[in-house]
Write a protein that binds this DNA or RNA. Structure first.
Lengths: 117, 117
DNA sequence: TCGGCTGTTATAGAAGAACTATAACAATCG
DNA sequence: CGATTGTTATAGTTCTTCTATAACAGCCGA
C-alpha cells in the first residue's frame, strides 16, 4: 500500500490520499476484500491529521470503492475491479498526453468534463 | 464559445472557466488563431468577477494553450490542436466510465496520477 | 495621434474550505 | 474485557477563492 502525499501540490491532501488509494486499486495492488491500513496509521506515517485521512476514506466510501465500519476498518469492495478494468486504457491515454507535454491538470480537466458533460 | 459555470460545483469557478475553454479546443469549436472573448465580457455574462476569468486565462497561458497580450486579448495557440487530437480517445474513455457509473472525480483522479506518476 | 479596448498589477476584504488538535464515543474482534 | 477502528463533536488557524475598486500599460482601429 503506497500512499504518497505532496504538501506543495495544489491538490488537497485528502484528495491526494484518495487518489493514491484509487491508483492502487486500478493497478491491482489493492484487491476487493483487502483492508486499507488504519486511518490513524496512515495519518502518522504521512505526518497529517487523522481527519484528513478519514475524509479521504469517506470519499472512497461515497464512490462505493470501500466499506467503512468502526472496529473493522476500510475494506475494498468489488467495484474496485471496475478501476482495474480501465487501467490499460487510462495508462495509454496518460502516455500519449505525457508525450505531448500535457499537464496532469489539462488532461484531468478534459476527462472530467467528458464524463459529466 | 460556450462557457458554462456551476456555482454549486466543488470545482473552483476559475477552474470551470478554464475547463470550458479547453473543451471548446478539444472539440474543435475553438481553433488556433481564434480569440477568446474579452475577460470583462465573460465575467459580466457569467456574473463573476473579472479576476476570476483572468485567473482562468492565465492558467491556460501557463499550459501554453493561449497567448495573452494586453490590448490584443487571448489568442489560441497551435498547441490547442493537441487537445483535439486526444478528443476521440478521451470521449471513448469517458463513455466507458459513465457506463460503469463512475464519477467524474474518480476518473479524473486516476488520469491525473497516470500523467504525473 | 487619439480613444477605446485589452490584459496587468495593486490593494483590500469577505467567505469558505482545508487542516490541525483534542477528546469522547461506539462498533468490532481477538 | 481490552485493544483497535471508524464516528462525532468542538474549536481554532491557515490558505484559497471570490469579490470589489482602481489605476496602469500595451495594442489597434478610426
Amino acid at each position: 500500500m503506497l500512499i504518497r502525499v505532496d504538501p506543495a501540490s495544489d491538490v488537497a491532501l485528502f484528495a491526494q490520499v484518495a487518489a493514491s488509494v484509487r491508483t492502487e486499486m486500478a493497478t491491482g495492488r489493492l484487491l476487493p476484500g483487502n483492508r486499507l491500513p488504519a486511518a490513524r496509521d496512515v495519518a502518522e506515517s504521512l505526518g497529517v491529521n487523522l481527519h484528513t485521512v478519514l475524509r479521504a476514506y469517506q470519499d472512497l466510501r461515497d464512490e462505493g470503492l470501500v466499506d467503512l465500519r468502526r472496529g473493522r476498518g476500510a475494506v475494498v469492495t468489488d467495484r474496485a475491479a471496475d478501476l482495474a478494468g480501465l487501467h490499460a486504457e487510462i495508462r495509454a491515454l496518460g502516455e500519449r498526453a505525457k508525450g505531448l507535454g500535457m499537464s496532469p491538470d489539462t488532461l484531468a480537466s478534459l476527462v472530467r468534463e467528458s464524463v459529466d458533460g
